[in-house]
Each structure stands twice: as structure tokens, then as C-alpha cells.
Design a protein around this nucleic acid. Structure first.
Lengths: 208, 208
DNA sequence: CACCCTACTGACCATGCGGTCAGTGACGCG
DNA sequence: CGCGTCACTGACCGCATGGTCAGTAGGGTG
């Protein structure tokens, strides 16, 4: 059977609480300045305990990132691959994005650090992985855009570049929401983004 | 007189070559992993020499950043505050942005590190500064957008959010150009960005 | 030539990090 | 109750880094 033994349950619980602690510390210090000691303190265990569950610092950070981003990508995929018009699906994806960052406000620092990795040269193979996840995401979104072009739901243009501009533009607004004390209702920001993306900023002749 | 003594000229030359070395090292390692030793090697001086010109590591990084960003902001201001329609000025600004990153491909790492600073808590007052520069820039662009709304050149919408989406969207494409081995002509990417921003992605009914 | 001045050097130091491992104590079992 | 087990601890180690400073080389001066 695939059922878990008691030890495995305990182990998973520890690993998850360590990841949560790592996330909080990274959120307030940044990846480079997040020390094992502070993560251990945050999780209320001793530093040595971390090494019972993770081989080294890199593995902890990597797993923390992978675990967190899996949730986001599942939410986005569900929204983008559901039924409905492209416009509806994109709206749904934006709502998911905002919802995710509301639930995981600490996450964006980790997300950025992985998109533009830094570190000593011997760690470069690890660095590449986070970046790959980002590119994979981008390619998937570009493919969805391309198919919306096929069905005539949006104009034809270079899908990769378009994916970049939309992703980063939308991300910027969502990140801004995270940093603000009080944000406008999610619906307002989604409307704004959809409006800019779909209709552009040119003055509509039907308006004054 | 405001003329510079020989010593001052020599000093400025050294400081500049140290900043250039710092920029190159930061570009390939990232801010956190850029060591004073490697910067010294890059500039072909000994580590101690750096401390004759800069109080400490933070000062070197800060000055390097300020000096580099001044150039970019001057270029953008010149383009955005020149004569002509808003559309023309925005095109000009995009060209300046692409030109700047072509000349200073190393810079974007430094730019990002300052937008989302990290470090130990006692450095937090320094961290805030780079972020402030970014916000200042954003406010200025938002004001320009607002005045274009006043003159009826573009639709009315929330200028801060719009500035965010446009800035980050355009930046993403420019950064992508930096990472690509061979990019399409600058004109093509500028056209694409302008087209998305002004007309949106909705299918034009006049097209097939 | 002797002297000094000063920009520069690089061995050195203190610090703080990631990672280790002998020790410990709580718990279950006979 | 005695004993073994094992998750957990935290003092410790090696290492790399930022920062220092006594020493040096070389050019200008009298």
C-alpha cells in the first residue's frame, strides 16, 4: 500500500515546517542573507536538526522553492487550461495570481532570486534550475497565446515577447499589491490589467 | 576656480576604473557573491587600494550603482521630456532603454539587486535608497502618463499602475534582449512593444 | 646622491558562515 | 527498573570574506 508509516508522517511534518521557516526568513532577509542559524531559530529547532532532513543549504532552499512554486503553477495551469474564452481564462489566471500572492506574500523574494540567480561559480548548475522553471512557464504561456492567435481571439504577434511583457507587467502590479498596506479590490486591478492588455492605452475615439 | 587639480583627476580616474571593475564582477557573480578580492583583481590593483578610495564595500557598490543609473535616467528624461507627441517620446525612450542595455549589458543585475534589496538588518537604511531611486523613476513616469491623459493622447486610467505595467513589461523584453545571443533589430522590438501598449492584443475587426 | 613622501601592496586579523559529530535525554521495551 | 535507541543538540571546525596596516618601491626635491 501507498500509506505512510508514522515515521514518514513525522518526517514530512518536520520538513514542511522547516520549509515554512526558510520561506519566512528568506522573505525578510533575502536569499543570500538567510542563514541556517536564523532558519533553525525560526523553526525552533537547533541548526544540526536541519541537516537530518536536508543534505545542505542548497537543498533546503531548492526544495522550499520547488514546493512553493508547484502550487502557483498548478493554480495558473488550472485557470489557463479550463473552458471558456481566452479572455475569461486570462482573467481567471490573474485572479489566481493575486490570490496566490495574498496567501504567500513572502514568496515573491524567493521567486525573484530564482529568476535572476546569483552565487559562486561552483553552484551554477543549481542556479540554472530555477531559471529553467521560469522559462518553462513562459514557454507554456507563449503556447497558450499562440493558440489564442490561431483561433482568432487575439491579434497575431510574436508570442514569446508578448508572454514576457504580459507576465512581467502583471507580476509588477501583483508585487506592488503585496507591498502596499491596503490594496484596491482584486477585481479592480484585474479589470485594469485586462483593459490595458486587450485594448491598449490609445485614446478611444468614442470617448471625449 | 572649479578646475580640478592633478591629484583629483587621477583620483577620479581610479574611482571610475574601480567602479567599472565592480560592475563587471557584479554582472557575472551577482551582488552578494561579488568579493572585494575579485573586484580588485578585475581592476588590476590590490585589495587594499580599493579602501583608499572607498570607505567600505557598501560605499563602492552604492556609488557604482548611482553612477550607472544616472546615465540611464538622463537618457530617459531627455527622451520623455523632448518635443513631439507622447507616442514619439515613448518610442524614443524605448530606443534609449535598449541602447543603454546594449552599452551596459552588465547593468541589469545591479539594477535588479537594488530594486529588491537584500542584506543584513543593519544595512537596511542603505537598502532603502536603491528602492527609492526606482520609485522616484516610477512616479516621474506616472506623472508623464497622467499629463498625456490630460492632453487626450491616451485613455484615462490609474497612472501608477499603468507605469508599473509598462515599465516592467518593457524592461522584461529589454532584459531578454541582453540574454539572447542575437536579438532582432531594436526597431522590431520597439514596434512590437509600442503596438501592444497602444493597441492592445484584441483582434482588430478590420483584420481577417 | 640621500632623503622623504605617498600611492600602493598583500600578509594578516576578526568575524561569521555552512557543516559536523560526540554527547544527551526522553521514550519504549523486556 | 535497567538498558538500548534515536531524534535532537550546540560547541566546534574549516573556510572565505571584509577590512587593516606595517612595509615597499619609485619618483620628485634639495
Amino acid at each position: 500500500m501507498a500509506t505512510k508509516s508514522k515515521e514518514e508522517v513525522v518526517q514530512e511534518f518536520r520538513m514542511q515546517s522547516l520549509q515554512e521557516a526558510a520561506m519566512r526568513v528568506i522573505a525578510r532577509r533575502g536569499i543570500a542573507a538567510a542563514t541556517m542559524q536564523e532558519i533553525a531559530d525560526e523553526a525552533e529547532v537547533s541548526k544540526g536538526t536541519i541537516y537530518l532532513y536536508y543534505k545542505d543549504r542548497d537543498e533546503l532552499v531548492e526544495k522550499t522553492f520547488e514546493n512553493a512554486i508547484r502550487d502557483l503553477h498548478m493554480r495558473l495551469d488550472t485557470a489557463l487550461e479550463s473552458d471558456g474564452s481566452f479572455e475569461q481564462r486570462l482573467r481567471g489566471a490573474l485572479h489566481q495570481l493575486i490570490g496566490f500572492f495574498k496567501d504567500n506574500g513572502e514568496f515573491f523574494r524567493l521567486y525573484l532570486s530564482h529568476r535572476f540567480p546569483e552565487g559562486s561559480p561552483q553552484q551554477q548548475h543549481r542556479q540554472q534550475r530555477g531559471c529553467d522553471v521560469y522559462r518553462e512557464r513562459l514557454d507554456k504561456f507563449a503556447a497558450i497565446l499562440a493558440s489564442a492567435m490561431e483561433t482568432g481571439e487575439i491579434r497575431r504577434m510574436e508570442p514569446q515577447r508578448l508572454a514576457l511583457l504580459l507576465t512581467e507587467g502583471a507580476n509588477a502590479i501583483v508585487v506592488e499589491r503585496v507591498m502596499e498596506q491596503s490594496s484596491p479590490p482584486a477585481e479592480a486591478d484585474v479589470d485594469l490589467i485586462m483593459s490595458i492588455i486587450f485594448d491598449g492605452i490609445r485614446m478611444d475615439r468614442s470617448q471625449s
